[in-house]
Simulated scan of single mutants.
Amino acid sequence: MERARKARLENRFEDALRDHLWFHENALAVEPGMAGVRLSFALRDWIYLAEQFPLARRALQGLRDRDTARMLNGAASRELFRDISAINGALGEERATHELFVQVDIQMPQLAQQCADLALPALVAAEDWPLARRHLPEPLERVSHLATHLNAYTEQLAKSGNTSSAPALLATVLNYTKEVRMIALVLARVDEDELAAQVTTAALDELRSPALRDAVQREFDTPGATIAAMLAHARQEQN
């Protein structure tokens, strides 16, 4: 991945694309711990390359189309759906994720339930409120599950005493508030306003740390506050 980045910066675009393709297809066989990087930083760098080298975008779309065909023709799995939705997100083509999920919901309803959390952003982007609501059978339970993970992550950071983990914590807070907002929005759009309010309240009440609750509340009150905090922290680190 580093070699691909270096090649892009040196305008060796074909070399960069070759390494991006290799990394996407082979990284997990070499190092399973790269799963998160493969669908985040690596795809981000790939899009940077595509802005200068259109063939890179077509190659990424080709991988997406290949995996979509696999998904609908006998090789379906949550992991494969995650790959496809991440690529569509990087490409800004969330509608393709919505279209795929509709097909999965028809052909493989049990798998659709397993992939619903991955599909939710695309369902919201497509404003398919009925389908999104059908795959949110227990919104309060889902928020409780998200809060449990955030509590555990925060407590682990506190025990480690790692002061450099602030950006990671802020990113986690941002993801948490985005997820809760999406759930509340789906409920509001199907006229379940009372449950939407309960979801937002529970998202705060189930957080054990007062500082964490304050951070989430700030993001609820002022969307973008967490990103501003991340930028401020980065400037502080530079100084």
Rank of each mutant, 00 (worst) to 15 (best):
R3D: 03
K6P: 00
R8A: 01
R8V: 00
R8N: 02
L9Y: 01
E10K: 05
F13A: 03
A16E: 04
A16M: 02
E25R: 14
N26E: 05
A27I: 02
A29M: 12
V30Q: 12
E31V: 06
E31H: 04
P32H: 00
P32N: 00
G36P: 00
R38P: 09
S40H: 04
S40C: 01
R44P: 00
Y48C: 01
E51H: 11
E51M: 09
R57D: 13
R58S: 13
A59S: 15
L60D: 06
R64K: 06
R66I: 08
R66C: 04
T68Y: 05
A69C: 00
R70E: 07
G74L: 07
G74M: 07
A75S: 13
A76C: 05
S77R: 12
E79L: 11
E79I: 06
E79V: 13
F81H: 08
R82G: 04
R82Q: 11
N88D: 15
L91I: 04
R95C: 03
F101C: 15
V102Y: 00
V102H: 12
Q103D: 14
V104R: 09
D105A: 15
Q107D: 08
Q110C: 03
L111S: 08
L111M: 06
A112Y: 01
A116C: 07
D117L: 09
A119K: 12
L120H: 02
A122I: 04
V124H: 02
E127K: 15
W129C: 02
W129L: 01
P130V: 11
L131G: 07
A132F: 00
A132G: 05
E138V: 10
L140Y: 00
E141N: 14
E141G: 15
E141D: 15
E141I: 09
R142G: 03
V143S: 05
L146C: 04
H149N: 09
L150Y: 03
T154L: 09
E155I: 10
L157N: 06
K159S: 08
N162R: 06
T163S: 07
T163L: 09
A166S: 10
P167N: 05
P167M: 06
P167W: 00
A168L: 03
L170C: 07
A171M: 03
T172K: 04
V173L: 05
K178V: 12
R181M: 05
L185D: 06
L187M: 11
R189I: 05
D193Q: 12
A196R: 04
A197M: 11
A197T: 11
T200L: 15
T201M: 14
L204H: 10
L204R: 14
E206H: 11
L207E: 09
R208Y: 02
S209C: 10
P210M: 11
P210K: 11
R213M: 10
Q217W: 06
Q217F: 09
F220A: 13
F220M: 15
D221A: 11
G224P: 15
T226Q: 03
I227Q: 14
I227F: 02
A229N: 06
L231D: 14
A232V: 07
H233N: 12
A234Y: 00
A234V: 07
E237Q: 13
E237R: 12
Q238G: 02
